[in-house]
Structures are given as C-alpha cells and as structure tokens.
Lab assay of single mutants.
Amino acid sequence: HNLTITQGKLFFHYNPKLCLSEIHKMEEVSGTKGRQERNDIALKTNGDQASCENELLKFSYIRTSFDKILLRWEPYWPPDFRDLLGFMLFYKEAPYQNVTEFDGQDACGSNSWTVVDIDPPLRSNDPKSQNHPGWLMRGLKPWTQYAIFVKTLVTFSDERRTYGAKSDIIYVQTDATNPSVPLDPISVSNSSSQIILKWKPPSDPNGNITHYLVFWERQAEDSELFELDYCLKGLKLPSRTWSPPFESEDSQKHNQSEYEDSAGECCSCPKTDSQILKELEESSFRKTFEDYLHNVVFVPRKTSSGTGAEDPRPSRKRRSLGDVGNVTVAVPTVAAFPNTSSTSVPTSPEEHRPFEKVVNKESLVISGLRHFTGYRIELQACNQDTPEERCSVAAYVSARTMPEAKADDIVGPVTHEIFENNVVHLMWQEPKEPNGLIVLYEVSYRRYGDEELHLCVSRKHFALERGCRLRGLSPGNYSVRIRATSLAGNGSWTEPTYFYVTDYLDVPSNIA
C-alpha cells in the first residue's frame, strides 16, 4: 500500500525493539523526510534493546553428524571492536523451508527459537588472519532439518551509529543413524509349514526405512522333555500350542467401542483428552525405555581390526524358502538304536541362519518350516543398504507352526516275539517326523474274553527296548493296539495285532 503524509511529521519514542533503520525507511515511504526535528525521533529510546544489523554474515563451514552440527561463519568486528559482546545463534526444527525470524513471537518477546549466546573469538592483530567464530550444536535429532541463523550482539553506541551483522536463515539436516526397533511384532501360524509375521514401523526411523531383515531359527525343545518319565503317576503330560491366527481386521481397528449394538453396526467412541494424553505418555515412556535398553543392555560386537582377528559373527547367506525346513542338525536320541526319531534339535552355532529381506511392506510369510516346531524370529529395521547396512537392534518374537495331521501315527506293522515265561516283546517304529517329539506310547492289549488293559511306555523305555515287553501273560489269544502321544496330543491307534500265548508248562520236552 502507498502511504503519503502531505502535512505533519513523524514522532517515535520509547520503541526499544524498533531499529532506527526501520524508522528511516518509514520517513522515505511516507514522504516526511526532512520535516522531523532532532528530538522527534529519539536516538536513545528507539532500538536500544534490539540488534540492528546492516551487514550480512556468511557461514564459512558446515559439518553434520547424526546428532551434531558444527558451524563456522566469517569474522565480524565493528569499528570499535570492544562493542562486540558476542553472537546469538538461533535454531529450531523446520520440516519445511518457510521459516521466518519472527515465527511464534508474542507480545512478551518470546519466540519459538532456541538461542545460544556465543563469546567472540580472540581478536588477531592481523586483519587478514582473524579467527572464524563458530559453535557445535549438540543433542539434535537424527535425520531432522533445522533452520539456523546467527547475528551479532553489540553494545549501545553513544554516537548512535547503527552497526551489526546478521546471516540469512539456512537449512541444515542432520545425518541418518540406526533406527529404533520395529514396533509390535506379531507372529502367527496359518499352516503346519508357515508363519505369518506382521509389525509396525519404528517410532524413530532416523532416516528413510529402506528394508527390513527377518531372521528365523528353529528352537530346540526343553531338555526336561527328553529326561522326564511322563508315565509316572502324578506327572502331567506336557503340551505345546501353536500360535493362533490373526483376529479379523475389524476387531483390530483402534479407537473402536468394545460393545456392539445388537441391531447392527455401531460407531466408534472418540477417545477423551485424558485417554489420548495417557497414550502419549505411555508411548514416550516406551521410547525412553527402549533407548535405555539399547544403550545399557546391548553391547556392540567388536569388529575385526587390522591384526587379522576374525569377526566372530557368522556370515549372512541367503537361502531359498524351500530350504528352511531342514535348518537344524538332527541327532538321534540314543545312538545305539537307529530307529528312534531325530527330534532332539541342538543347533550348531556355526550354522548360517536363513533370512529374508523385506522391502516396502511390514509383513512376511515364512514358508518351508517344520510342522509343530518353535521358531525364534528376529526382526531388524534398516535405513541404508549400501555401502553397508545400517540397521536397528533386533526385536524378537516366537511362534510355533501348526501340527501336521497323521504325523504322530505309527507307520509300519507292530511285530512281536514270544519268549519263555510268557513274555512277549512288542516292537514298532517311532514316527519319523512327529509333531514336536514323542513323549510316550500307549499300549492297549486284551486277552479274548477279558477286559482291555493299558500300559504306558516312556520315551526312554522305548529307546532301550525298541518297544516294550509284556510279562506274566496268561495263555490265550491276544490283540494289541499302540498309539503315540506327542507334544500336540495323541496320534491314531494302530491296526490290531494278534498273537497267541501258550502255557509254557505244557511245552513238550526233548528229553527222552
């Protein structure tokens, strides 16, 4: 807008934040220059609390790290170098490059900038070799853009010569660093050979998330399962459950009422301010606690030095998902009996873990797994792929695949051998790939016309006998059925096997 004052003059007093240069501009645009008398524009009460600059400061050096910015700028000295009290560095987070010096300023003089007072450097006698002032900004957020400017702080001049310097606002972004852990990993099994893994992005990506790394490792069953005799009275049979499938998407929606109208769909109840505040506090606490764990609990591995020492970490090797089922080394339970199943799973520490690289999504279907087997899954978020990966501390989750139908069934015939004193040795093959492992066998036998009897055969007993022995049988026709019990439950009964026990007292003698 054009402003013209045809008559009258300007009068400025007691404006401590208004620089004289701005008042002189007002004289020019209003056409009143030359009308004012000496005392109409006070030299001592206008701009006496402001830094009124008329020179431009330029930054000469900028260096960044993930949490620091090192700045240096060209030296500046007023005509009387004693008038320079120091520099004021202003900075704040700036997602967009549209910041002005006066953003967030209120009537009390406060604003949204963080201000650092910096002492002037030592003055050199040689004007050509003056030290460049600077400042190291610490405690910054990774991968965050900051708006920065600097200006001088000078003393009051009796001659009211307006001098000083100020830089333009520059924008500097800190470097990326390792992201925080992925949030809320959930693993479920939808079949006997697959596990579905879902997660949420890290709360602090500290860069642009480029991919996720998912490692999985087959877990050995508890050692007590191999040692305890679950045929003993009072000892509860062990059981394991597989990871249940995901709930429906509708039930997972946030901010939804727990109660549904019987007449149909209901609208979600909005969260109160107290609920939102509580969630923010919980989120802040979780982030602080995660940072504490990362800094205190997890110790970084030592990389190899120039002395030739090897990095103890196993090298990563990509495998196809079809090879995942046989990740671990199978060892027989008892070496003397080769027909026992290889369900003991000690994992070799030198073995390469299978892994998958996930790009542009937060889910993965891990296939080719062994049925009813526990897996430990390790999830890392990465925001750099080359020249070397920059990934987060791992988040861990466990899951067990679903049982395989008929995996616990005894394959092959049940054979028998009759000894003296009416002892019958029953023999059968253990299931080759049971659900988890076989903890015991149930032997059901009966003599024709009598009630059915049951015998429990422990895992250890089966390994020693290759089956079991029935003792003290009365003469007669017998039928026997056997079924295995694994961590997933009972298998199917075998087809009945028949044998006849004679009275050993009636056996004919070869003595003449």
Rank of each mutant, 00 (worst) to 15 (best):
A407T: 08
W216I: 09
P238A: 07
E417C: 02
Q275Y: 06
I209Y: 02
E495T: 07
I377R: 00
R286S: 10
G234K: 11
Y230W: 15
S257W: 03
Y441K: 00
I482D: 01
N206Y: 03
S348E: 13
K460P: 07
K432D: 11
P338E: 08
V358K: 09
G308F: 02
S320A: 11
E452P: 01
C267L: 05
T373M: 09
D323G: 15
V296F: 11
L213V: 15
N435L: 00
H371G: 14
E452F: 14
S367H: 06
I410Q: 07
V331H: 14
G476A: 02
M427L: 12
P244N: 11
H371Q: 12
K271Y: 14
I276W: 05
Y478D: 00
F337E: 12
L473K: 01
K361Y: 13
E362Y: 05
G264S: 04
Q252G: 11
P300W: 15
F285L: 07
T340D: 12
S479R: 07
T307I: 06
K287C: 06
D291R: 07
S315G: 11
E389M: 14
S239H: 04
I366R: 02
E442G: 11
S458P: 04
G322C: 10
L379G: 00
N339S: 12
V334I: 05
G306V: 09
D229E: 12
V439R: 07
P245N: 05
A330M: 10
S344W: 11
S262N: 03
H454S: 02
E420Y: 15
S305V: 11
F462S: 05
R313K: 15
D273P: 14
L440T: 12
S363T: 09
C456L: 02
C391S: 03
A381W: 00
G368R: 10
L437T: 00
E247F: 12
R240F: 13
L470N: 01
E495L: 05
D323A: 08
Q380R: 04
V214I: 15
T303Y: 06
V423W: 11
E247S: 09
L470I: 10
T288E: 10
S344T: 12
E417H: 02
S367R: 08
Q219Y: 09
G489I: 09
V439K: 15
R483V: 02
R370L: 07
D506S: 10
N208F: 11
R446W: 03
H371F: 11
K432C: 09
T343S: 07
Q275I: 13
S398F: 05
W242H: 15
Q219N: 07
G436T: 11
K287S: 06
G467A: 07
E249C: 03
G368H: 04
A335D: 09
V439Q: 12
V327W: 08
L455Q: 07
P300M: 14
L213S: 08
F462I: 04
S257V: 10
H416V: 07
S492P: 11
G491Q: 02
V397F: 05
A335Y: 06
E265V: 05
L277N: 14
E217K: 05
W493V: 01
Y445D: 00
P387F: 12
E389C: 09
P205H: 05
R286W: 09
E388T: 06
E310V: 03
L426R: 01
I276M: 09
V329H: 03
I418M: 01
W428Y: 01
G467F: 06
G264F: 02
T340Y: 09
S248A: 12
Y478Q: 03
G476C: 00
E221D: 08
T494D: 01
L487E: 09
R313C: 15
R481D: 00
A336G: 06
D503E: 13
Y504S: 04
L228F: 12
V365K: 00
E389S: 09
F226G: 03
P338V: 09
L487W: 09
T485W: 08
H416K: 09
N206D: 02
H454N: 01
W242R: 04
E465K: 05
K317P: 06
E265L: 09
H425V: 15
F499G: 00
S479E: 11
Y445S: 05
A263E: 05
E217S: 12
K361C: 12
R353H: 06
Y445T: 06
W216N: 05
G322S: 13
E430S: 14
Y445H: 03
S268W: 03
I418T: 13
S283Q: 08
N422F: 10
S262K: 04
S239F: 02
G476P: 01
T343K: 12
W242S: 10
S444L: 05
P332Q: 10
S474R: 09
F372N: 07
L505N: 11
S223A: 07
L505G: 09
R301M: 03
K432R: 10
R240Q: 08
Y500Q: 05
E281D: 15
E452T: 10
Q252I: 07
P332V: 05
V358M: 09
G449C: 10
N255S: 07
S474T: 12
L228N: 10
L455A: 09
P346L: 07
Y445P: 01
A405T: 13
S479M: 03
N421E: 15
Y375C: 02
L487C: 05
P338S: 09
G467E: 02
P300H: 10
Y498T: 08
R370E: 15
Q252L: 13
R459G: 09
W216M: 09
S304K: 13
P312K: 06
K271A: 14
V214M: 15
D261N: 15
T272S: 13
S341D: 07
S262T: 10
Y375Q: 06
W242Q: 06
L321Q: 15
D503H: 04
L464K: 04
Y259I: 02
P238I: 15
T401D: 00
E351M: 10
Q275W: 09
T241Q: 11
P300Q: 05
G325T: 15
L369H: 01
T373S: 07
E465V: 12
V411R: 11
I418Y: 15
I410R: 02
C456M: 02
F355I: 11
S341P: 06
I418Q: 04
I438P: 02
V424Q: 02
L213H: 05
Y292V: 08
W216E: 03
C269F: 13
C231A: 01
K302A: 11
G322P: 09
T401E: 00
P238C: 03
R459P: 04
T497V: 10
G491A: 04
E221R: 12
F246E: 07
V439N: 04
I209D: 03
L235E: 09
P244T: 07
P434R: 05
G491L: 01
D503R: 09
A395Q: 02
V365Q: 15
A336P: 13
T288R: 08
Y448E: 15
A381S: 13
E279V: 08
A263S: 12
P349L: 10
A463N: 09
S284H: 09
E282G: 12
L505V: 09
L232H: 02
F246Q: 12
A394W: 14
R400V: 09
G412F: 10
C468W: 07
D385A: 14
L277C: 04
N477S: 05
H352R: 10
L321M: 11
F215E: 03
G449D: 06
Q380K: 07
P346A: 05
P312N: 11
H371A: 07
E290Q: 06
P300I: 10
K361E: 08
S479V: 11
C468T: 01
